[in-house]
Design a binder for these strands. Sequence first.
DNA 1: CGATTATATTCCCATAAAGGAATATATTGG
DNA 2: CCAATATATTCCTTTATGGGAATATAATCG
Lengths: 113, 113
Amino acid sequence: MARATTNSDAFNAVAEPRRRAILNLLALEERSVGEIVARLELAQPSVSKHLRVLHDVGLVTARRDGRTMLYRTNAASIRPLHEWTGSFERLWQHQLTRVKSRAETATQKPEEK
Amino acid sequence: MARATTNSDAFNAVAEPRRRAILNLLALEERSVGEIVARLELAQPSVSKHLRVLHDVGLVTARRDGRTMLYRTNAASIRPLHEWTGSFERLWQHQLTRVKSRAETATQKPEEK
DNA sequence: CGATTATATTCCCATAAAGGAATATATTGG
DNA sequence: CCAATATATTCCTTTATGGGAATATAATCG
């Protein structure tokens, strides 16, 4: 079996750095495809393809205005990712404090190798 | 160019659902490869390969104990993902309240179609 | 309607994935 | 050192990229 498709879910879709760049760019305001192309310096077909993936998994919304298409990040669909990563938050805090206290102990007694 | 490699960064590594399952399992305690195989009902070579990817990007730590290898989630390396997704948090809150108030308005004036 | 602008899709290519099976490597006990 | 246990790696196959170039589709203007 090959890898899961990029439009199978949000985790796969955001694995691609340019798609994250697009989401960042479209977070605060709607943008046309042309604007994205100009800002991110990507080829137009490339941007359209990435937008397709993002749209398929619901990470962006699309709206037509005349001949331009306006895209915008659908932040709500990023929430599950935030929640999953957040489930590890307590742990990294514990792990960091443990490292920290170990470091402090080492500072207090540097001779204890 | 093809897709980025799964061991190029954490975003790519966690795109695979079984790797997320492994991270969940190893979050609270160290586990041997055999335990992971048993718990997740995956083939042993498959687990070893996934662990390799996770280890390459720093998402798990490894430690040998006799003939078994003990792996553990390195929560700190998940933090960047949490921070990136968190940068959209304000937005989805705004978007949700906007949807909510729109729904309330609709409830107040259902005749205004 | 025809030309133009804005996007989307298709085709081709090189690369990387993930599973399964088989095999290699490492470590321990005797 | 040899057998057994625990993991890791390799080989093979199928599938899905993502970029570039070319082309198709959609919508506006005159």
